[in-house]
Design a protein around this nucleic acid. Structure first.
Length: 262
DNA sequence: ATGGTGGCCGAGCCA
């Protein structure tokens, strides 16, 4: 049975409840993975999502910051969470579908402004988080798994509006790109979005600070869908719903979709 | 070179 999933950094699930519902109604993914819910789990407006057919949720939350959730039409099993780099943040949760596929939903630390761990502790935490992800994937050797989320890194030159201008900007520095590459390699993860859309500029995030985000189009591809090699061939139909960036009271991220024939 | 916006909560932190 094929299923479609979407991943979306929602920047407050309570404030954005109307556009989460809009996405569920108009696009109807089987699974929606959210990041930056910025809410305790018990305050996520689950009744609204249930009314649209999404009766199941696996989530981790905290007050005001971070938070990840997996919404599903079909039952899912809570597979726990990891707390990398000892941050004590709600940045990961995993769920298993009936077909045995495990979905890992990540919100990797943004890393602050200065790309130097000697002067910016947050940048060091981001690198450490990725290192611990790498070590976990190396030790676990996962199969039948999908990894989605806001990884806060745009790895390719065509994942950003200007490779040259962003080389020293956190999210596209060579150090981060190298670290993300190691994390991806450790689990042999296949970038499904780029498998489906191999060429051309591709973004999932546009800053709130731009005068006209659409016209300026200074985007970055921070949000990712990866799969383990045993199921990577089942992934297809990747797309980024850019229109959602222009919805009422938008998130600064657009949802990323993929379908898996499994 | 700087400041631009937005969300958490109701100041200052985080993105």
């Amino acid at each position: 049975m094929p299923f479609t999933l979407a991943t979306w950094n929602i920047n407050s699930v309570r404030l954005r409840e109307p556009i989460v519902c809009k996405l569920l109604e108009e696009e109807g993914p089987d699974i929606l993975c959210l990041q930056e819910c910025k809410s305790p789990v018990e305050k996520i407006p689950m009744e609204r999502f249930k009314a649209l057919g999404y009766h199941h949720m696996v989530a981790r939350g905290q007050k005001g910051y971070n938070g990840v959730a997996i919404l599903s039409k079909a039952p899912i099993e809570d597979m726990g969470e990891m707390d990398f780099a000892g941050l004590g943040h709600a940045r990961h949760v995993a769920a298993r579908l009936d077909n045995g596929v495990v979905i890992h939903n990540f919100y990797v630390p943004a890393g602050g402004d200065v790309p130097d761990r000697a002067v910016n502790e947050k940048f060091g935490q981001k690198l450490d988080y990725l290192t611990e992800m790498r070590d976990w994937f190396r030790d676990e050797q996962m199969t039948r798994s999908i990894l989605v989320g806001d990884l806060n890194i745009a790895p390719r030159e065509d994942d950003v509006w200007s490779h040259k201008k962003l080389l020293k900007v956190v999210s596209h520095t060579p150090e981060e790109v190298e670290q993300l590459g190691q994390t991806q390699e450790a689990g042999a993860w296949v970038d499904i979005t780029r498998k489906d859309i191999p060429d051309g500029q591709l973004y999932s995030w546009w800053s709130y600070r731009a005068r006209d985000w659409d016209a300026a189009d200074k985007g970055r591809r921070l949000d990712h869908v990866w799969a383990t090699p045993d199921i990577a061939n089942a992934g297809h139909n990747s797309r980024i719903l850019r229109a959602a960036r222009g919805w009422e009271k938008p998130s600064d991220h657009a949802p990323v979709f993929a379908t898996f024939d499994l």
